[in-house]
Amino acid sequence: MEIKGEYQIDAPRQAVWEALNDPEMLKKCIPGCESLEKVGDAKFAAKVTAAVGPVRAKFNTSLSLEDLNPPVSYRLVGESKAAAGFGRGSATVELEEQDGGTLLRYDADFKVGGKLAQVGSRLVMGATKKTADQFFSAFSKELDPGAARVDAAVESTAEPSFPWTYVLSGASFVVLLIWWFLLR
């Protein structure tokens, strides 16, 4: 399935780029991120645990960055696995200077499997949006605690719906894709 979105971040492009290069910063902002390590040239591994209601899942994520064009764009390819299922796919991300801040755009194409596929892609979409919003909200605050402002807009090819609990945890994959590809 495909998901696109954009976020306006109140920080200059270079600052955004650098923040996205800071594993500690990312770790702080990714909901449920336990670890984030560089495991090779443009290859990373992360562990993200998400827990909502009765369901908790730990996602092991591996990512590699391609088509690097700092500080403007990337392509990210990755896979995220948990007992509740898996996601794999790729995303392109672009940073654009706009209104004194930075407009981040992403365009991801991914597939989900296991329980994540079973309960319906519509829900993955909704949950993904929520998780992404959480990330960017935290990210924006970390960058400039005094003037946090995030305008989020997500559009997708499927209809958004309310997030179902364990789907939310799976959706972390897409979020990881997004900033991961901002990370060098």
């Binding site: 597939k111 989900v112 499997g113 296991g114 329980k115 596929a117 079973q118 309960v119 319906g120 892609s121 829900l123 179902w164």
Partner: peptide
């Protein structure tokens, strides 16, 4: 099922 064998209608919501 999708072409890769994932069950897409795997809950009473679907």
């Amino acid at each position: 099922y999708d072409e890769s064998g994932q069950l897409m209608s795997g809950s009473l919501m679907d």
